[in-house]
C-alpha cells in the first residue's frame, strides 16, 4: 500500500520535471532558461531522495546533497554572468 503511494509520488515528480523541461526548451531568453534549470535541480533533489528510499541506501542522500550544491553554484554563476559578464 505505502509503496504504491511512493510510486505515485515519483511519477508526479517526473511529470513536473517534464513540464519544466518544456519551459527550458522554449524559454525566450537566458533568464527563463536558468529559472527552469533552478526548478529542475531542486526537483532533482526530491527525486534522488525517492530513489534512495526505493533502493534503501543512505549513501544516495549524500549524492542528493552534492547535486543540490552543484545546482545552486551553477545558478549563482550563470546569474552573475548574465548581470555583469565574465
Amino acid at each position: 500500500m505505502a509503496k504504491i503511494l511512493l510510486d505515485i509520488a515519483i511519477s508526479i515528480t517526473l511529470l513536473s520535471l517534464l513540464v519544466s523541461l518544456i519551459r527550458f526548451i522554449l524559454g525566450p531568453e537566458k533568464v527563463n532558461r536558468i529559472i527552469a534549470f533552478d526548478v529542475m535541480s531542486v526537483s532533482g533533489i526530491a527525486l534522488i531522495a525517492y530513489v534512495a528510499a526505493l533502493s534503501q541506501r543512505i549513501i544516495y542522500m549524500d549524492i542528493a546533497l552534492v547535486y543540490g550544491i552543484l545546482g545552486f553554484i551553477g545558478v549563482i554563476i550563470v546569474a552573475r554572468y548574465i548581470e555583469k559578464g565574465l
Binding site: I8, A9, I10, I12, T13, L15, S16, L17, V19, S20, R23, I35, A36, V39, S43, A46
Partner: peptide
C-alpha cells in the same frame, strides 16, 4: 510532489 508539479505548471 503535487506542489512540485503545480510549481512547474506555473513556470
Amino acid at each position: 510532489s503535487i506542489f512540485l508539479f503545480l510549481g512547474s505548471l506555473g513556470l
